[in-house]
Design a protein around this nucleic acid. Structure first.
Lengths: 362, 362
DNA sequence: GAAACCATGGGATACGGTTTCCGCAATCGG
DNA sequence: CCGATTGCGGAAACCGTATCCCATGGTTTC
């Protein structure tokens, strides 16, 4: 009778309990379970029987400590409820699960301090990779901080993956999975311009957000290409949410701004804008056209269905995970800062029913 | 010079490295870092200096193994991108983070096999609690399987929490956090009935889904209370998605079904229904009224804004985490099957603009 | 002034597996 | 028929940390 284990047997069964009860050694049990060592059929049967009886599962912490252990990817995200990045998370998680990897998740709530704390927490967990989702705020300090993260993780045998934000400058051990943000905005704006719109209300997002900067830049380039002057007064910055879309349009109308189309930085912003236009008695798209960005499910659920830019969010997630998995199997970091560290996926305009040529003005 | 650690120093620094470099014992380093033992200022300074230099973080696996360790909650969810349960996940994760807990996340994709595999995986991880989100399919086997899960987890010192599904029968060590599903449906249907609607198309969801069953039951009760006959032909089952809403309405119209309102099982289904009505040239709410369920952000972003039932999803998540945290601090399972194992949160109707009294018929 | 006590720091052990190194038995070849 | 090879199971050494127990030096108390 084992001494350190009373009859009551609180807590979980250990590999020793299994070994004892099966009348074999601890090593044999381990071998049967990991299956990376030849064992006789008889032994396997005996062990598995007891494992079933005791409802035994191996202790993941012990296993990791001893060297084995399930690869784990940490997903750090601003807000789970944001549709776009929820899809990325789904892509990462799905691809991880497919390979038997585990997914940890943490939300930063746009707080740089929490982001830092979480990265450290994940470092403690010894995760295989940390995936950081979402556009970044372009503070001066950002580059330095991220570079530090990347190096810390790399030193610990882990790896940093940036999804949906621009790559880090210099020789930093990090992978970036990005999409053609500016190109999508260019195409979207071109779509409006070619439909004949000349006065467009632009709601790119927060001025400091890298995503918003790219979208604004793409739009501006399209205007230049069409030889249409770009009026800075027609740009309203603000958060990527419904309320901002609503208020920006409301304010613009109140200010007597003259526009025939709205170029929203996000589908959600577009939804808010649409609602505000309706509230003002304007029809979409007869009076004012609207386009969004992201192509989240909402876009096709609005009435009229929203013309928008499709971003392959879920695939970005899958690609991100594949990148770290490949690197892992490929034998660690081959060349830092080389190609293969920055993957860019394409975007394209999805034409639905929210754009029409501008109405003749009175 | 340590022998088992070459100069290259791949991998992460251990507590031993820190101790050695600071010229103190391993125990001292541990104490400085956990802070649960008095140490001199001098010692703390010395250790922290080296910790900073080496960028050391403790190995979470080793810590857990040794008894310490961060409490971890596992969130199992069908689909992260579903708005309703994403909010629950947010609530759980937020409350967890607030207490310094960690959140693991796994998606089941509606696959009972994966659910099983994930619960076992989480058991390996030694999680403090497993939170299972979302309505369950009411198979015969369900009760037994869940009861087994609950007991397994309980035996391993963990705990099962069911969110948004009915509690387990019998003496099972599990906690349920639920909302007044049937009551919400009753109130919602009553709202339609009191507006004068008599012929209502009901889209409750999948017939086997517990959530759908409750919503249907609540609606039926309301009809009875109003003395309005409930026509089974007006009920169309199907998944909780946009397409189902669209097709159900489309088919109903094609079949010549006569209805003045749609009682959708979900806001997303309502969105699909709304689109289909529009496509058929019907106006909402002038010709047909629509109501939803869940009150996800989409509900207020549609045009017209959707009257729906508010479910406190995020709070359910917080409550779920609080329940396990309390139980943990309260000294383990006090009484199994007693009260406090089933928490029910209230729902209420949110009146917006998608309901009008039925138009006079020709 | 001696004894009892406190505040700290160090050494050793436990946590639950994996894995390497060995030994034993059975089988095979000559 | 005997020695060598092969196959399989066991004992023990870690993995990195927390903690128990003990040693030490200084302080308090009688």
């Amino acid at each position: 009778m084992s001494q350190r284990k009373a009859a009551g047997d609180a807590g979980r069964a250990t590999i020793r309990d299994v070994a004892e009860r099966a009348g074999v050694s601890v090593a044999s049990v381990s071998r049967v379970l990991s299956g990376n060592y030849p064992v006789s059929e008889e032994l396997r049967r005996r062990v598995m029987k007891v494992v079933g009886d005791l409802d035994y599962v191996t202790n993941a912490h012990a296993r990791s400590l001893a060297g084995g252990g399930t690869p784990t990817v940490a997903i750090l995200i601003n807000n789970i409820t944001g549709a776009a990045f929820a899809h990325v998370a789904k892509g990462v998680e799905g691809a991880a699960t497919l390979r038997g990897w585990l997914s940890l998740v943490g939300t930063t709530g746009d707080d740089p301090e929490r982001e830092l704390a979480l990265v450290n927490l994940m470092r403690q967990q010894g995760v295989t990779a940390v995936v950081l989702l979402g556009g970044a705020y372009d503070y001066d300090e950002y580059q330095l901080r991220m570079a530090r993260f990347a190096r810390s993780l790399d030193a610990a045998g882990s790896h940093l993956v940036l999804v949906g934000r621009p790559p880090l400058e210099g020789d930093v051990p990090a992978t970036t999975v990005d999409y053609d943000n500016e190109g999508g905005a260019y195409a979207m704006a071109s779509h409006l311009l070619s439909a004949g719109h000349r006065r467009v209300l632009v709601l790119p997002g927060h001025a400091e957000l890298t995503t918003a900067q790219g979208r604004l830049k793409g739009a501006r380039r399209a205007f230049e290409a069409y030889g249409v002057p770009f009026d800075p007064d027609m740009v309203r910055h603000g958060p990527y949410d419904y309320e901002h879309g609503y208020e920006a349009v409301q304010d613009s109308l109140r200010d007597g701004l003259d526009f025939t189309a709205v170029l929203a930085g996000t589908d959600v912003v577009a939804a808010g804008a649409m609602q505000a236009l309706r509230a003002a008695g304007l029809r979409v798209p007869e009076d004012v056209s609207i386009v969004g960005y992201d192509d989240i499910p909402l876009a096709s659920q609005l009435t009229p269905q929203l013309t928008t830019v499709h971003v392959p969010y879920e695939e970005m997630g899958r690609v991100a995970l594949r990148a770290v998995a490949d690197r892992r199997e490929g034998g660690g970091s081959r060349r830092k800062g080389g190609d293969g560290d920055h993957l860019v996926l394409g975007t394209h305009v999805v034409v639905r029913n929210s754009v029409q040529p501008p109405a003749r003005r009175a």
